[in-house]
């Protein structure tokens, strides 16, 4: 089969399930959208370490300390894998990081919020990671093969995080009333961000990421999958979800829910979340303080 040479041929190629490798010709629009999408994913992994990192020092047992450190370490590793893909698409890691700390590029909404208690640590690892794995599993089918390939490793590692999160939550819901209360409070606080996690209800055929088969799962499908998989698990523990409208329509099998706060989503991802400034500042400072190390150590042919 001849390699696609025009935008039209390329579109047909990817829509028919064809794959793209780094050195292949690709339309500028594809490269631009792909780079932006993957870069935001890398940013999210990197910024996603910060809310949990705060609790590495506070983990209440040695086992939890090890598991949480390992989880955050995995996220850093994912950022590395993803930024490597972006670098091979032509944007150096240093520039990605500069654009991130200057607010030029975005990161996922959930990482703009504070982590207030150890309950958040459990709920993040359990539910946020579950929501993330649903998006990431769908990316295994991404038309850009180098990205799809690393997703295998990422999904495999995320599965440990869900286990860790569920275990933290189970220990707390079977503990004291206060511990159980911390889990419920965390779910109450994270529910809003979780409902906007997979993005707005853009119809499948209007999503530009789907046209190029960068994504192959519609936002709403991902959200439905999440609700279907995890709401019963939450209820099973005697915990509640702070949405009186939430329920599954038994006939259609579709989950109904109150309209998520899309304004808040827009507000948060454009850099106005409750912890956005503080976390970007931490990134900026730690990059600045360690710049000499990169200069000395990573200098070519030193």
């Amino acid at each position: 089969m001849a390699a696609p040479r025009t935008e039209e041929e390329f579109r047909e190629h990817v829509q028919a399930g064809g794959l793209v490798e780094t050195a292949d010709w690709m339309p500028d629009d594809y490269r631009a959208k792909l780079t932006k999408f993957i870069e935001m994913h890398g940013n999210s992994e990197l910024m996603g370490v910060l809310p949990e990192r705060e609790w590495i020092l506070r983990a209440p047992t040695l086992q939890r300390k090890l598991a949480l450190t390992a989880k955050v370490q995995d996220e850093v590793g994912h950022a590395q894998l993803i930024y490597r893909v972006v670098e091979d698409l032509g944007k150096p890691r240093e520039r990605c990081l500069e654009d991130l700390v200057s607010g030029k590029t975005k990161f996922h909404n959930v990482f703009h919020y504070p982590t207030k208690t150890w309950g958040d640590v459990g709920v993040i690892a359990w539910l946020i990671d579950a929501a993330a794995i649903i998006s990431q599993k769908a990316l295994l089918k991404c038309s850009y093969a180098p990205y799809a390939r690393i997703m295998k490793k990422i999904c495999w590692e995320e599965s440990f995080h869900i286990l860790h999160g569920r275990d933290v939550v189970l220990a707390m819901v079977t503990g004291t009333d206060e511990q159980r209360g911390l889990v419920q409070e965390a779910i109450d606080r994270w529910w809003g961000p979780l409902m906007t996690f997979h993005g707005n209800q853009t119809p499948f055929d209007e999503d530009p990421m789907i046209e190029w088969r960068i994504k192959s799962q519609a936002n709403e499908d991902a959200r439905q999958r999440f609700l279907d998989g995890y709401v019963p698990q939450i209820w099973e523990l005697g915990l509640t979800v702070p949405d009186p409208e939430l329920g599954k329509d038994e006939e259609t099998g579709v989950w109904q829910y109150s309209e998520p706060d899309w304004d808040e989503l827009r507000h948060v991802v454009t850099g106005n979340g409750p912890r956005t400034a503080e976390r970007l500042e931490l990134r900026r400072i730690s990059r600045e303080e360690t710049a000499w190390v990169r200069d000395v150590v990573l200098a070519e042919a030193a």
């Binding site: 590395q80 894998l81 490597r84 091979d88 890691r93 390939r149 690393i150 490793k153 150590v297 990573l298 030193a302």
Partner: peptide
């Protein structure tokens, strides 16, 4: 092939 990394 597993992936790539940057190292001094």
């Amino acid at each position: 092939h597993g992936g790539s990394l940057e190292a001094p």
